[in-house]
């Protein structure tokens, strides 16, 4: 799975959790750019992403992400 495919899947997870059909993520998107992406929703997104890709992040990985791109790097490193 390449980065753009991962981004597409991650985008679908975000749409589902944040209940916002119009949401379009890029690798540069951060929590500041998405109104509803706050600390309370973040953990639900993380759990949904883990379930979707059948992977498990470490706590340090989750706490270090600043952008969607960094999350995709973590996912990509686990899939390949």
């Amino acid at each position: 799975m390449n980065r753009s495919e991962i981004l597409k899947t991650v985008n679908e997870v975000f749409i589902d959790i944040l209940d916002d059909e119009s949401l379009v993520l890029t690798e540069e998107t951060s929590a500041n750019d998405v109104e509803d992406w706050d600390s309370l929703n973040h953990i639900q997104i993380v759990v949904a992403v883990e379930k979707q890709f059948k992977i498990r992040f470490t706590s340090q990985e989750i706490l270090s992400w600043k952008t969607v791109g960094e999350m995709i790097s973590s996912i990509s490193s686990k899939l390949n």
Partner: peptide
């Protein structure tokens, strides 16, 4: 506090 805890309890 909250973020590490919520990750831990996820």
């Amino acid at each position: 506090v909250f973020m590490p805890l919520s990750v831990y309890f996820r």
